[in-house]
Design a protein around this nucleic acid. Structure first.
Length: 864
RNA sequence: GCCCCCUUGGCGAAAUUGGUAUACGCAGCAGACUUAAAAUCUGUAGGUCGAAAGACCGUGCCGGUUCAAGUCCGGCAGGGGGCACCA
C-alpha cells in the first residue's frame, strides 16, 4: 500500500462529493447566540470566463482561514458570488454577437465548476450574481432610499466622448487621446449624471481609519491620501482690470497663505466659469482651452502634460500689498474639481508654479529665509524651496514660522473686507470628490427613476421594482441600447401618469460590489438586507483581495455601510474589520525570435546549473526569456489552473500558492515549484502509510516526549501564523515537523501511539491548506469522521516548557559563543555564568568589562 | 507630475518587531539504492583567506542613533503599483 502513489484526481472528487452530501459548509443565517461567528470573504470574481491563478491564490488563502476557524469552533460564513455586470460582457456582445446575459451566465457556470474543483469550503447555497434581477432589485431599492435620504443628487460632469462610436469611453478606453475601437479623437462632453454624496463623509471616513487596526497600514495611508484633507484658506482677489468680464473677483483656495507675499500670478482651470466666459469673446483663448481638453479627464494625464498657460490680460489686486497687481492666466494644470478651480502662484515655494513662472517669465519672489539669517531670503534657481524657515519680505508676517504665519495671514484676511465681507477665511478642503455612478451602458443595474416633463425626476414606485433590463437588445448600432428601446424607455410618469421617459443610464459596477457582503448574510431576503442577520454577521472578520482595490472599492463600501445605516438597512459603520491585500501571481515571459509572445507550455527550459535558456518545443528555435510579469493574456504568460489541477491536483496547486511567498507579496509561478509542492504531497502520503502500517509497539519515554514536544511546538507556531495569514511561515514549520516524523517513523524508539497521534495533529494542521489529502490521510491512520468536521487539536502548554535555554554571547556586539543556562536563572546569575566562561575570560584578558547587557531569554552582550 | 510600496545567498524567502542574519523550500553538487533511468534516501552549501582551528567581510548604496541595526532616523539609486468610467 505504501508504494502506491497518491491519486489526487479520484481522491479529490470523492471528498468534494462527501462534503457536499453532508452540507458541512452550510451556515445558518441566524446562528444560536452562544455561537461565535466568523465571516471570511474573498473579493468575488468578475465572470470573465475562466479562473486564473490569482483567483486560485485568493480563494486558497481565504479557505485556509475559513477551515481553520471552523475547526476552532466558530460558526463560519464563507460565501461566493459573481460581480457580474460590466463592460467585458458588452465588448464580447459586440465582438461575438452574443448577448451579455448569455455570455455572463455561461461564464459563471464554467467558473463555478472550476472553483468547485479547488475543494473550497464555501456555502454555495448563498451564491448570487449581481446581474440577477433579485439582487439588483434590492440595489434599486437602496438607491431610492438613498435618494429619499438626500444621499444622491444630479449634476453635470465631463465624460470622454467617442464621436464615431457615439459612446462614452472609460479612461482605459482612451489611448493617446483616441478611442480604442474607432481611433477617433476623443472629445470632452458634459452630461447630467447621478452622484452619491460620499464627500459628506470625508471627515468620518478619514477619522475612522484609526479604528481599523486589522487593516494594512499602507491601505489606510492610501485612503487617507485619497481623501486628501488639507487645511488652508479661501481668499478673494479683487479684479483690477475687468473690462472683459462682469466678474469682480476671483476666489482661490490655498494651503499656503503664509507665502502670500510671494504671489506672482493667478491661474484658472480651463473649465473655470470665468475662463469659459472669457473664451466666448476670445478665440485664441477658446483655441487654447480646446487644446487643454484634448489632454483628457484623468489627473495623471493633466499633471504629466507640459505646463501651458494663456494670459487673459486680466489682473487682480494683491490683498496685502497696496498697488501690487497679479496677471491672471488660464493654465492646463489647474484642476476645476479641487478647491475653487483657481490658484495663486507662488513660484519660489512650489515646483509646479516655478516651472510655469520660468516658462512665462513671471515674478519669482522668495519669502522664506533660513532661521539663522532671517533677513536674507533663500535664493531660488530652478528648484523651488519647500523646506521650513521664517518669513521674510512679507510685511506683517516677517520673522514668523510657517504655522504661525498661516494663522496670522488668515486672521488678517478675516479682518480685511472686500465688498462688505471678509476677504478670506480659514477652510478645510478634501480631495475626495462625490462618486459619479451614471454609466451610459446596457449591462448594469438600471437607475430606477423616470424623467417627466411636468414632474421632473420622479423615483420609481417600489412595487415596480425591479426595473429589469430588457433582453431584446442588439449591439450592432453604436450607443446605449436602452436609449433606442422605446417600449422599455417610454413609460407613464409614476407621479402624474403622463408619458415620460425612463432614465437610461445604469449604475457603476462599483455600486454592485459596495454592499454584496451584506447581502450574503441573507441572500434571499425580500428587503436589501435582513437587518438582524446583517448585524449578527457584519463586519466581515477577514476580507481578502488584491491591493488594486485598496482605494475605490474599499472606500465605496465604507461609504455604503454608512449610507445603509442611515437608511436603516444595518447598524454597522465599518464593513471590513480585518483586511488582507494579497500579491499577484506572476510568471516569466517568453518571446520567439520573431518577437511573438509564447506560452509557458510551448517552450522547454534548459538549465545546466550555471545557464538557463529556453527553446521552442515544436521547432527547437531559441526563445528569449523576458521579465517576470503579472499573468496576462496579452503576454501569454498564463498558466491554466485546470491544467494544474488535472495533472497534480487541487491540493498541490493550493500548497504551492500558499507556501512559496508571503501572501501579501507577488508569487512567481514556476514549474519547479509546483513539482516541489507535488513531491511534498507524495511524501506525506508515504509517511502516513508507513505510520498506518506500523505494528503497535511501545517506545522509550525520552523519544516519545521529544516527538510530542515537537508536534505541540509546531502547533503553537501554526496557531500563531494562520490567523495572521502568514502561511509561508506555517508551511516551513510543518516541513520541519514532517522531517522529524519521518525520522521517528523509521526508528524503533518512538511508540506507535505517540507517532500516530503526532501524525494526526500534523494532518489536522495540513488540512486547511490541503483538505483532500488530509481527509484521505485521516482515514488511513484510522480516525473516525472527516477531518474537515473535527475540532482543532488542543495545545498542551506543558509540551512547550523547556528547562534549559541556549543564549548567544556577544563580545562588543559580535557573537563569540553560546552558553546554556537554566530557564529561570536571573540576570545576575546569567552574568556570572557568562563571565566565568573560558572564551569570555580570554577576551577580557584580566580587565573588567565596561558593561554587560543581559536580555533575559534572548542574548548577552559583554562590552569591553 | 503627485502619492504609495518593495530591494536579504544561484532563486522563493525566514528572522519571535532593536537581540545568534540566511530557518524552510526550490535549483545545484557529492554519495547511496538501481543493469540503467525515474522515484526515493543521505550529506553539502553566503563570500574571501586558511590544511584546519579560525579570522575578516556581508541584508541595494552613503551616512547617523545604539551595548547591539535586515529592523530605527537622514539622504540616494533601482524596480513595481495607484491616480477617480477596467474590475
Amino acid at each position: 500500500m505504501a508504494s502506491e502513489r497518491y491519486n489526487a484526481r479520484s481522491v479529490e472528487q470523492k471528498w468534494q462529493q462527501r462534503w457536499d452530501e453532508d452540507n458541512i459548509f452550510q451556515t445558518s443565517t441566524l446562528p444560536d447566540s452562544d455561537k461565535e461567528t466568523y465571516y471570511v470573504l474573498e473579493m468575488f470574481p468578475y465572470p470573465s470566463g475562466r479562473i486564473h491563478m490569482g483567483h486560485v491564490r485568493n480563494y486558497a488563502m481565504g479557505d485556509v482561514i475559513a477551515r481553520y476557524k471552523r475547526a476552532k469552533g466558530f460558526e463560519v460564513l464563507h460565501p461566493m458570488g459573481w460581480d457580474a455586470f460590466g463592460m467585458p460582457a458588452e465588448n464580447a456582445a459586440m465582438q461575438n454577437k452574443t448577448h451579455p446575459k448569455g455570455w455572463t451566465y455561461h461564464n459563471i457556470a464554467s467558473m463555478r465548476t472550476q472553483l468547485k474543483s479547488m475543494g473550497l469550503s464555501l456555502d454555495w447555497s448563498r451564491e448570487f450574481a449581481t446581474c440577477d434581477p433579485d439582487y439588483y432589485a434590492q440595489q434599486q431599492k437602496l438607491f431610492l432610499d438613498f435618494l429619499a435620504a438626500d444621499l444622491v443628487y444630479r449634476k453635470n460632469a465631463k465624460v470622454n466622448w467617442d464621436p464615431v462610436d457615439m459612446t462614452v469611453l472609460a479612461n482605459e478606453q482612451v489611448i493617446d487621446g483616441r478611442g480604442w475601437r474607432s481611433g477617433a479623437e476623443v472629445e470632452q462632453r458634459e452630461l447630467t449624471q447621478w452622484f452619491f454624496k460620499i464627500s459628506d463623509f470625508s471627515e468620518d471616513l478619514l477619522d475612522s481609519l484609526d479604528g481599523l487596526d486589522q487593516w494594512p497600514a499602507k491601505v489606510k495611508l492610501m485612503q487617507a491620501n485619497w481623501i486628501g484633507k488639507s487645511t488652508g484658506a479661501r481668499v478673494r482677489f479683487a479684479l483690477t482690470e475687468n473690462s472683459k468680464t462682469s466678474a469682480s473677483e476671483i476666489e482661490v483656495f490655498t494651503t499656503r497663505p503664509d507665502t502670500m507675499y510671494g504671489a506672482g500670478f493667478m491661474a484658472l482651470a480651463a473649465e473655470h466659469p470665468l475662463s469659459l466666459e472669457l473664451a466666448q469673446t476670445d478665440s485664441e483663448l477658446s483655441a487654447f482651452m480646446d487644446e487643454c481638453r484634448k489632454i483628457g479627464t484623468s489627473v495623471a494625464a493633466i499633471e504629466t502634460a507640459e505646463k501651458m498657460g494663456f494670459n487673459t490680460g486680466l489682473t487682480v489686486a494683491h490683498p496685502f500689498i497696496e498697488g501690487r497687481v497679479l496677471p491672471v492666466y488660464v493654465a492646463n494644470f489647474v484642476l476645476m474639481g479641487y478647491g475653487t478651480g483657481a490658484i495663486f502662484g507662488c513660484a519660489a515655494h512650489d515646483q509646479r508654479d516655478l516651472d510655469f513662472a520660468r516658462k512665462y517669465d513671471l515674478d519669482v519672489i522668495p519669502v522664506i529665509a533660513d532661521a539663522s539669517s532671517p533677513d536674507q531670503a533663500i535664493e531660488v534657481g530652478d528648484t523651488a524651496y519647500l523646506g521650513d524657515g521664517v518669513m521674510v519680505n512679507s510685511g506683517f508676517l516677517d520673522g514668523l514660522a510657517k504655522d504661525d504665519a498661516i494663522e496670522a495671514a488668515i486672521n488678517k484676511l478675516q479682518e480685511q473686507s472686500l465688498d462688505n465681507s471678509p476677504q478670506g477665511v480659514g477652510e478645510i478642503n478634501y480631495k475626495l470628490r462625490d462618486w459619479g455612478v451614471s454609466r451610459q451602458r446596457y449591462w448594469g443595474c438600471p437607475i430606477p427613476v423616470v424623467h417627466c416633463d411636468d414632474c421632473g425626476v420622479v423615483p420609481e414606485k417600489e412595487e415596480n421594482l425591479p426595473i429589469a433590463l430588457p433582453e431584446d437588445v442588439t449591439f450592432d448600432t453604436p450607443g446605449n441600447p436602452l436609449d433606442r428601446h422605446p417600449t422599455w424607455r417610454d413609460v407613464p410618469c409614476p407621479s402624474c401618469g403622463k408619458p415620460a421617459k425612463r432614465e437610461t443610464d445604469t449604475m457603476d459596477t462599483f455600486v454592485d460590489s459596495s454592499w454584496y457582503f451584506a447581502r450574503f448574510t441573507d441572500p434571499k431576503s425580500s428587503t436589501p438586507t435582513n437587518v438582524s442577520a446583517a448585524n449578527r454577521w457584519l463586519p466581515v472578520d477577514q476580507y481578502i483581495g488584491g491591493i488594486e482595490h485598496a482605494i475605490l472599492h474599499l472606500l465605496y463600501s465604507r461609504f455604503f455601510a454608512r449610507a445603509m445605516s442611515i437608511t436603516g438597512h444595518m447598524d454597522i459603520q465599518e464593513p471590513f474589520k480585518g483586511l488582507f491585500t494579497q500579491g499577484m501571481v506572476v510568471h516569466e515571459t517568453y518571446k520567439s525570435k520573431e518577437g511573438d509572445w509564447l506560452q509557458p507550455s510551448e517552450i522547454d527550459i534548459i538549465d545546466d546549473g550555471s545557464n538557463r535558456s529556453a527553446r521552442h518545443s515544436a521547432t527547437g528555435d531559441p526563445v528569449v526569456i523576458g521579465g517576470i510579469e503579472k499573468m496576462s493574456k496579452s503576454k501569454r504568460n498564463t498558466v491554466d489552473p485546470d491544467d494544474i489541477i488535472s495533472s497534480f491536483g487541487a491540493d498541490t496547486a493550493r500548497w504551492f500558492v500558499l507556501s512559496d511567498s508571503p501572501p501579501d507579496r507577488d508569487v512567481i509561478w514556476t514549474e519547479a515549484g509546483v513539482e516541489g509542492a507535488h513531491r511534498f504531497v507524495q511524501r506525506i502520503w508515504r509517511l502516513v502509510n508507513s505510520v498506518a502500517s506500523r505494528d503497535n509497539q511501545s517506545g522509550n519515554d525520552d523519544a516519545d516526549l521529544k516527538l510530542r514536544k515537537a508536534a505541540h511546538k509546531t502547533l503553537a507556531r501554526v496557531d500563531e501564523m494562520i490567523p495572521g495569514l502568514r502561511y509561508n511561515s506555517a508551511v516551513a514549520q510543518i516541513y520541519t515537523l514532517v522531517s522529524e516524523l519521518e525520522q521517528s517513523a523509521k526508528s524503533q524508539s518512538v511508540s506507535t501511539k505517540v507517532l500516530t497521534d503526532a501524525m494526526g495533529m500534523t494532518i489536522q494542521m495540513i488540512a486547511p491548506m490541503m483538505p483532500h489529502l488530509a481527509e484521505e490521510c485521516w482515514t488511513v491512520i484510522g480516525r473516525a469522521g472527516m477531518v474537515s468536521a473535527t475540532a482543532w487539536p488542543e495545545l498542551d502548554p506543558e509540551m512547550l516548557v523547556e528547562s534549559a535555554i541556549t543564549l548567544p554571547v556577544q563580545i562588543n556586539g559580535k557573537k563569540r559563543g553560546e552558553i546554556s543556562v537554566p530557564v529561570d536563572l536571573d540576570k545576575q546569575g546569567v552574568e556570572e555564568a557568562v563571565l566565568s566562561e573560558h572564551f569570555v575570560q580570554s577576551a577580557l584578558s584580566g580587565k573588567e568589562p565596561r558593561k554587560v547587557v543581559v536580555v533575559p531569554g534572548r542574548i548577552v552582550n559583554v562590552v569591553i
